[in-house]
Structures are given as C-alpha cells and as structure tokens.
C-alpha cells in the first residue's frame, strides 16, 4: 500500500507547477491511473484528501481517469483491451502483443487560481 508515498510525489510535482504558474490556490487535479499501474484508485483518493489538508490544495477536488490495459497485435495490427491479462491476440492468436496503455500513473492536468 504505497499510495501515500505516491501522493507525496504528486504534491512535489504540484508544488513545482504552483511555483511556475505563481498560483495562489489549487482547485482541481486530474490523474490518469492505468489498470496495471500498481495502485488502487480509491486508496489514492483517500491519501490525496488526507494529504491536502492545510496546503494550498486544501479545497482541490481530485478526478481519476482509469485507463484500460490496451495492447496492439504486432502480427495483425488489431488493438484490444485485455482485462484478463492473457496476452493472446483476439483476432489471430499471436502472442506478440505490444502494450499501448494501462501502466499510466500520471498527473494529467491541474486547475489553479492565479
């Protein structure tokens, strides 16, 4: 359960942005969390709202977009979502799949008052 340490990293990046934009307040934060990111979105949310207290993000809301595990078949080119982690192409049966998305753990955007 390393979500709190990830939220600490998130606040480091947010602070950088606040300095850069000379913002007075953070009002919104949006994250992209892949299915294979290794974190639990609900825990991330709890950690975020716990961590923000007393900071300039104290009124910030958090939005999390869950990203599906998406692969592309290197043999036939088909793109597919693989929730079962079985890396066999739905169309041609190849196991040569390239991951396109699903491991994200990104701060996508922030809304600030400047």
């Amino acid at each position: 359960m390393h979500e709190l340490s990830i939220v600490a990293n998130l606040f480091d990046i947010m602070e950088e942005q606040v300095r850069e934009q000379k913002a007075k307040k953070i009002t919104g934060v949006k994250l992209q969390v892949g299915r294979l990111s290794g974190v639990v979105p609900e825990f991330l949310e709890t950690a975020f709202h716990m961590y923000k207290k007393g900071t300039i993000a104290s009124e910030a809301r958090l939005e999390i977009e869950n990203i599906n595990l998406t692969y592309r078949c290197c043999s036939c080119g088909k793109t597919m979502i693989k929730d079962d982690y079985i890396l066999i192409c739905d169309a041609c049966g190849s196991t040569d799949l390239e991951m396109l998305a699903g491991t994200e753990l990104l701060l996508e955007r922030m809304e600030m008052e400047v």
């Binding site: 753990l105 701060l107 996508e108 955007r109 922030m110 809304e111 600030m112 400047v114």
Partner: peptide
Amino acid sequence: MEKKEVLVLKDLL
C-alpha cells in the same frame, strides 16, 4: 480570481 488550467502530464513515479 482567474482560473487557469495547466496540462502537466508528469509521471508520479
């Protein structure tokens, strides 16, 4: 106050 939205796209790890 003026609201500003910034695209960050930074990896938390």
